[in-house]
Design a binder for these strands. Sequence first.
DNA 1: TTGTAGGCGTTATCAG
DNA 2: CTGATAACGCCTACAA
Lengths: 344, 344
Amino acid sequence: MSNAVRSKITIKQVAEASGVAPSTVSNALTGKGYVSEETRGRVLQAAQSLGYRASSLARSLRLQQTWSVGLLVADVSNPFFPAVVRGVEDVLWRRQYNLVLCNTDYNKEKEAAYLRHLLDKRLDGLILASTAADSDDVLELQAEGVPFVMLNRRHVSARTPYVGMDNEGGVGMAMDHLLALGHRRIAFIKGRADSSAAEERHQGYRQALEREAIAYDPALVMQGDYTIESGHAAAARFLALRRPPTAIVSANDFMAFGAMALFKERGLAVPSEMSVIGFDDIFVSALPWIELTTVRPQSWQLGASAAELLLELVGGREANRRREIILPNELVLRATTAPARPER
Amino acid sequence: MSNAVRSKITIKQVAEASGVAPSTVSNALTGKGYVSEETRGRVLQAAQSLGYRASSLARSLRLQQTWSVGLLVADVSNPFFPAVVRGVEDVLWRRQYNLVLCNTDYNKEKEAAYLRHLLDKRLDGLILASTAADSDDVLELQAEGVPFVMLNRRHVSARTPYVGMDNEGGVGMAMDHLLALGHRRIAFIKGRADSSAAEERHQGYRQALEREAIAYDPALVMQGDYTIESGHAAAARFLALRRPPTAIVSANDFMAFGAMALFKERGLAVPSEMSVIGFDDIFVSALPWIELTTVRPQSWQLGASAAELLLELVGGREANRRREIILPNELVLRATTAPARPER
DNA sequence: TTGTAGGCGTTATCAG
DNA sequence: CTGATAACGCCTACAA
């Protein structure tokens, strides 16, 4: 009730109020040192009535730990990320850690600036879900000895703790499904060139073709940037081909939507005239108007695993710990794929 | 190159390396005190080559400022929030502040726990976008004198800085549009009972009816919880009515999708047999398969304004500053509304 | 069992 | 212009 502006109560005042030394208050409150039941009671009582709350700030300086970790994502607005963020946050919450969220907008300078800033704040660790594959910052982090985990993005050269999904296998499943349906001309819309995940998905495409001894046709691969618009554009290019594909695999759901939108405009029926498979399984894909067949990663788990791995690194028990976690995906069969029609 | 583990370089080491006192290093680096050009040069040089970066942690303790603000949202996975989060973060980024993101899952205890935690960390301010209207925590915050802004959620009693959208007017526009199309039996799917925003939207519905002297029929109002499923369920209830509505306004897009999904299942054509309007304009609503007519709030701006207001409060210039910002919405006309058909 | 004395890394103050 | 000193709030030896 009468606690007034209690945000400024310090350990000293509690000490005075309970007639003991600050160190005793600390011992009583943290339960670490020897304190008689009686004094502990008095201290707790005083702390309570003054509304004392120890400053994590001061404690952090003293203990060299901030109980905060940073998460760098390209853009939370991209519907793939929220689940990942939740995964991270849910784990941190359980362990009483806080999450500092940073959006890098696929921008190297912004990312670098954020990194500097976070390092200055002496966060306990970092999760990088946005880094370009060739970022020098990653090397620096490693040099500085800051615990960090790369999330679905590898660095070209550095060997770092990594949590990711099976990108190659995911696209592989999609391709196998189409191949089994008899498709032979299958196009692929690639993701941003600077991410390892995009590269791995592209690999999945190539290897599936190889398995079936189908020649890789560069005309059937378009570069996108994960936006709906880029999928739309890519699809238009595919249709303009002399021999258009009968199916398309997209590196994410957004671009698949774009492609489907174009097919709709052009009066091309999906799936009877064109099969489409996406990647990410964002919630939209399940809506009855869309029902996109797509590869579903374990997004929440991805974030959760990254957070868990990071906390272990922070705890310093890294030695006896696997540094790489690859989570499998699932192919969600819905309504955008059908058997290939014999080519005319 | 040879900077070794530079994360531990302190101001003292820089002082030694450049042959001056720590305070002089501080002055040179922050540019606050008088320092001769010559010494400044030496200091910068030394700092540079040692890779010195001042600890914000220590600085925070000393300056009583953390350059971090907390943002409490119900759930970033709800597609309404990412844009808000981005708005907040973009403004903070410009001002060199960091964002601590917390998901409360509409859970009071979790929210309270987070709040305690954040207060312990001495964040500079808080943005509350998830608080229940009757939360006691808000009163406590106020008592503690921590700068904070409520985002699209008011407290029942406390007068606090507030940034929100025109919920009432938003639903009002939707209603007026339907009314103008000749609809007279219009149903409303309400949002979670504990939020002021939901209440305001409900008010918008009532008042629009009043303006047209149409009686308020409780059977035409269903309580939802912002999920697709709850919209689906609500729609089913409406159709079961002896005199079903000819149009539905939903307190958010998700529930509108749920309703539309049900209509699709039941073979009820939208918009010819049933008009639907949502609220939020999440990106999905614009997809060609959906084209939901909906009320578009300025989500990014909402977050940005909240952050700006908060930073002003933090800066202590609150006195001469409006404490309440209400952003207008826009009705986005798409393909889910049509003139009412004469009642049979 | 309790208290005293540093020190975590900065910066503000003030004397030199 | 520069440097010693103290203080931000807490915790951990170590001494009493």
